[in-house]
Simulated assay, not measured.
Amino acid sequence: MPHPMDKPVDDSEFLEMTGQDPAQARILRQSLEHLASGLGGSTLKEMAQEVLSGRMGLREAADVSAYADQAVEQSAPVAEKWAALSDAEREELAADGERRLADEQRQADSSSAMRTTQQAERPSTGTSRHDGSGWSLY
């Protein structure tokens, strides 16, 4: 059940965390959504849900020792697997990551261009949608 103070977090927090990179912000959001589904266990699920709901900022969540401890514990096997990979396997995974990031960047650029085009194509009537004309209390 949603908390009464919930407001879904917008991408501005993720943009701040990713140096204003919309592609990385989108990947960060997707990662949190995966964690919120329970992918990383109940503690990280709770943390991701708190961040995505807007109840807690990502930096604030990182300062909660229970969340930080669980993140470190969950990442240890990944670090071990990475260390066990050959240089060629690491390069292949890095290339896959670069391709994914490039795909996300193209999507972000496309979405931005689409919004700009839609705004430019919108006819201007010279009055605001909220100028009060067109309705009456009487």
Rank of each mutant, 00 (worst) to 15 (best):
Q30D: 15
P22M: 04
E98W: 06
G57Y: 08
E104M: 10
G41W: 14
L35C: 09
L15N: 05
A95W: 11
P22A: 03
A94K: 12
L85P: 04
A48E: 10
G40A: 14
A83S: 11
S75D: 14
A61V: 04
Q20T: 03
M17H: 11
S31W: 09
Q105N: 04
P8N: 07
T18P: 08
Y67F: 15
S37K: 10
A68T: 03
A76T: 12
E73Y: 10
A23R: 03
S42T: 10
L85F: 13
K7L: 13
A88L: 07
A95Y: 10
A102T: 05
A23W: 08
G19Q: 06
E46P: 01
A88S: 09
A76Q: 15
E73D: 12
E50W: 07
T18Y: 12
A84D: 13
E33M: 08
A23N: 01
A84I: 03
L28M: 15
L15K: 06
E16G: 08
G97Q: 08
A61F: 11
F14C: 02
Q105E: 12
Q70G: 02
D69G: 01
H34M: 13
L39I: 00
E50F: 08
V78H: 15
A66N: 09
L101S: 02
R55W: 09
R106W: 00
E46T: 08
S75H: 11
Q20Y: 11
L28F: 13
V78K: 14
D10P: 01
G57D: 08
P22V: 00
L85T: 01
E80I: 06
K45W: 00
A108T: 02
K81G: 02
S53K: 02
L85H: 07
S31R: 12
V51S: 06
A61L: 06
G57M: 05
L35P: 04
Q20E: 15
K7P: 00
R26C: 06
G57L: 06
D96V: 08
D63P: 00
A62Y: 10
I27P: 00
F14P: 01
D10G: 08
